[in-house]
Every structure is written in structure tokens, then in C-alpha cells.
Design a protein around this nucleic acid. Structure first.
Lengths: 222, 222
DNA sequence: CATAGTTTCATACAACTGTTTGAAAAGCAA
DNA sequence: TTGCTTTTCAAACAGTTGTATGAAACTATG
């Protein structure tokens, strides 16, 4: 293994193209052209297209999960084992949002690739993705520690909604920009994270009953 | 135009297959096999694969929008021109959620197709999709009427989050089911809609400031 | 009936897909 | 250098894709 040059070039180019254009219309020939390597190099270094995608996904998935858990650990340590729910949620959605919408191009490609992977389910990824649930379970546990009085079902829904808002915001930046005619600032990454965390926190801390009741409560304090 | 049999069979089969398996791995041959018609029929009746997809999308898009606006109109009429924000949100997310998760198979295919279309952006759809923004603007206006004191930016974010939660719930039923080990009931469609509407309403009626503050407020009333 | 128009069909086509091949090139130890 | 392994490369492969063709079958009107 003299030098990973070709391998790395393929991975980088593939990640960027998949992030930009999705899995459907990026061919191996597109990738090798962008990477400046020979077509056969993909099969030589990775075995097949699917294995290339799988490697990309596994690498990035582990990195994201590590980053999330790291933030979670710091938050729980700072709170003496029990973090604020906002900080747990921030650890959950922060890395991805910051990654996608932040300034670092490579990180942005990586994060966008992960978003694509979580949506356009392609066979090589579908098999691996089950592990994500185990990872999320750790966050569900942390959330339960932060909100002991909250029911499990509400915890799961809160986690689900937090991810939903974060991912949709990343994925469909364009629509919100157009709809708001630029008035929703999507460059202020921390403000976006704050907003998602705030709404998810509200959802978790004001769960009981139906829409009409929650609305009444909310109006009362508004 | 003696009988639309072939045309309709193609449309129905295409919608079902696209809804089930996504655009990427459904070929014209899959579609005509499912429809029980000849391969050339697609090009004869629709011109091209892209035009078939576009027709499918336009038809369904108009139907969904009509349904949404109808519910909105009824809500506003009942409230004397100013509907409750919950009812506006319900008109926005209800049709799609009910369509996707409801019992009617054909409706479910249609709704799932629309979800796919909104995510796996294929060229023929990407061009048309801009009109969706105009449609959503009507809901932003209705929300503004329901919450005159709410800022425009918060309105847009609330609308955005409501759609995000609804769509993600439809799209990734599986993950939430696994994560919660079946404890989150995804068969109770109305409960799901209520939950989405409740959270979005909270987001809209408790907007000011950052996460830490909203959390404090929420705790105080919890 | 005949005939003009519409619709279906089997088949072929060119373009593109991921993968394989075998030889050339490069790297490196002796 | 020699000899062996690793890596690159152009070319070809078999399979699949959307599309086109021209003849056959059908339909309806005169």
C-alpha cells in the first residue's frame, strides 16, 4: 500500500458527486472522471460500486456518531451525569446541521452525503442502516435521564421530530429560502440549531393531550 | 380515444411501483409488466418516460393542493374568515398524512409517490416543483391571519417544521417503529396528525428567544 | 362491406451501465 | 541490474436502459 492517492481521490470525488446530485444519476464514469483516475480503479480498490458506497457510508456514519456521542458525553459530564434536554438534543442534531450548512466544503459534502444516504435508500446502505437505531437508542436513554417524568413514547416522538426538522432543513434549504423570499436566514447555523432544539424541547416538555389543549396552554403563556 | 384502459393501467402501475421502490430502480419494463401492456405503449401514450412521470406528478400535485385548500377554506369559513392555527396546520399536513398512512391502497400509492417525488428529485419533476412554493404561500397567508402577532419569519419556520415532521414520519415509519419497539403507534393516523399539529402550534405560539428560554417557559408550565 | 384512423405488438436499436481482462507501467527488494 | 508484486490503463464485455420502427390488430365511420 504505497500511497492511498487513488483510493482517496475516488472516495472524495464520489462523496462530492453523490452529495450534489444523488445516487441515481452519478455513474462510476462520472466519479473516475472527477477523480482523474481510471475506470477500473474502482473495482480494483473497492471490489464493486456497492462496496464503494458502503465504505463511504460506514466511514461517515461512524464519524458522525462519534461526534454526537462526544458532545453528549461532554454535556452530561458538565451537568454531573444529567444533561439539560436542550444539550442532549443539540448533541443529536448539531453535528449534522453544522456539517451540512457550515463553511467547510469537505465536511459539507460528507454531511450532505449522509443525508442523501438516509433518504434515497440504495441497497448497499439499506443493510447497514439498522445500526443507526442502536445509536439513536443511546440518545433516547440520555433524553430519558434528562426528562425522567416524560413517557417513553413522547421521548421517541421528540427525538424523531428533532431529526425530522433538522434533516428537512438541510435537505430542502431551497424551498424555505424561496418561500420566505430570503427572510429565513439559513446561513446562521447556530440559530437554526437553536430553533430546532427549542421546538423539540417544547414538544418534549409540553406533551400531554391533544392539539387544542397544547395550543390553549401555549396561548396562555404567549 | 375509445378507452383509456391502457393509459390508465400504465399510470396506476407506475404510481404504485414508484411509490414502493422509488424512481431509481423502476424501469419502463417493470411498469408495463405490472400494467400488462406492451412496452411501446408508454412512448405511444406519453411520449417518453419523463413525460409519464411529469403527468403523474402534476395530476397528483393538483389533487393534493385542491384537497388542502378545500380543508383550509372550510376551516376559515367555520371561523368566520379566521381559522384556528391548528386547523390551518391540519389542512396543510392532514391530506398527505391521511393519504399515506390511511387504509385506501390507491390513495396510499398516490401519497407515497408524492413523497418520493419531493425527495428523490428527478429532472422532469424538478422543473415543475417551483409551483409548490406558490401553493404554500397561501398557507403562510392563512397562518398569518390566524396569528396576526406572529412574525413572518416564524410563520415560515413553523410551516416548514410542520411539513418536515409530517413528511419524515411518513417516509421513515420503519425507523420510529424499530426505535420505539412498536410503542409509537403509527396506525392511528389522526393521533399522528394531532401530534404534528400540536408541536407545530407550540413552535408558532412560543417563538421568542433561544432554546434555553423556551425550555424554561415550558418547564414552568409542565 | 370497405377504408381510414387509432392502438397494439414483437422486435430492433443505440446508448449507457457496472464489471472484467490482459497487458503495460510503476514500485520495490534482492 | 533482475525478479516479483502492486497498481494503472485502454479496451472490451454482457446486461440493461429508454426509444423507434413497421407491420398487425382493432375500431368506427362512410
Amino acid at each position: 500500500m504505497a500511497s492511498d492517492h487513488t483510493r482517496t481521490a475516488i472516495l472524495t470525488a464520489a462523496e462530492r458527486l453523490y452529495a450534489e446530485r444523488g445516487f441515481a444519476d452519478v455513474t462510476l464514469r462520472d466519479i473516475v472522471a472527477a477523480a482523474g483516475v481510471n475506470l477500473a480503479a474502482v473495482n480494483y480498490h473497492f471490489g464493486s460500486k456497492d462496496e464503494l458506497i458502503a465504505e463511504l457510508f460506514v466511514t461517515r456514519s461512524l464519524a458522525t456518531n462519534r461526534e454526537r456521542l462526544n458532545e453528549l458525553k461532554m454535556a452530561e459530564a458538565a451537568g454531573g451525569g444529567r444533561a439539560d434536554i436542550e444539550d442532549v438534543l443539540r448533541a443529536l442534531v448539531g453535528p449534522t446541521v453544522r456539517g451540512c450548512l457550515g463553511p467547510d466544503k469537505q465536511r459539507s459534502d460528507a454531511a450532505r452525503f449522509m443525508i442523501r444516504a438516509s433518504i434515497e435508500s440504495v441497497p448497499p446502505i439499506r443493510k447497514i442502516k439498522n445500526r443507526e437505531v442502536d445509536h439513536l437508542r443511546k440518545f433516547a436513554a440520555a433524553m430519558r435521564r434528562s426528562l425522567p417524568e416524560c413517557s417513553d413514547v413522547d421521548i421517541y416522538w421528540g427525538l424523531h421530530f428533532a431529526l425530522a426538522m433538522a434533516h428537512q432543513t438541510i435537505r430542502d434549504t431551497e424551498r424555505l429560502t424561496k418561500l420566505s423570499e430570503g427572510r429565513c436566514d439559513l446561513n446562521d447555523v447556530n440559530a437554526i440549531i437553536d430553533r430546532v432544539v427549542a421546538v423539540a424541547t417544547l414538544a418534549l416538555t409540553t406533551t400531554s393531550g391533544r392539539a387544542s389543549k397544547t395550543a390553549r396552554v401555549a396561548r396562555a403563556i404567549g
